[in-house]
């Protein structure tokens, strides 16, 4: 299992299949943005997102979309604010802003949000 820091430094990538994104880490989710859809409800009753943790990865299902790739332009990313599992969720310094760029061959490039991209916590 990789830490988020490790994923970013080693440039490890995730995977995407239709409305499912597979991330190679575990995290507490605080906010996810797909296009102009701001998701903050991560409960099991959420109509927008379903998150399932496996031993070595995290499955994220975007329930409102058939294929998440159709929703985003090539310049757009799925954006998320997350906290590494085990770290203090209440410490803002631990809040990590990620941009997930969906590329060909089901690959998801995971980048820490560029300073240029407007992404508000």
């Amino acid at each position: 299992m990789h830490s988020i820091e490790e994923v970013l430094s080693k440039k490890l990538y995730g995977l995407h299949y239709y409305n499912r994104i597979i991330l190679p880490f575990k995290a507490h989710f605080l906010k996810v943005i797909v296009s102009d859809n701001i998701i903050t409800d991560f409960s099991t009753n959420s109509k927008g997102i379903f998150i399932r943790e496996k031993e070595d990865f995290t499955d994220v299902y975007f329930l409102e979309y058939k294929d998440i790739k159709d929703t985003l332009s090539k310049y757009e990313a799925v954006k998320m604010v997350i906290v590494e599992k085990g770290k203090d969720i209440f410490d803002f310094k631990n809040h990590i802003k990620l941009s997930l760029y969906l590329e060909g061959k089901h690959k998801v490039n995971i980048e820490e949000s560029d300073h240029d991209i407007i992404f508000l916590e």
């Binding site: 296009s35 102009d36 985003l72 332009s73 310049y75 757009e76 990313a77 560029d114 240029d116 991209i117």
Partner: peptide, 13 residues
């Protein structure tokens, strides 16, 4: 410029 489009998250939506 592709970098500018990316920074602006350009989308036709």
């Amino acid at each position: 410029d592709q970098e500018i489009l990316k920074a602006n998250e350009f989308d036709f939506e």
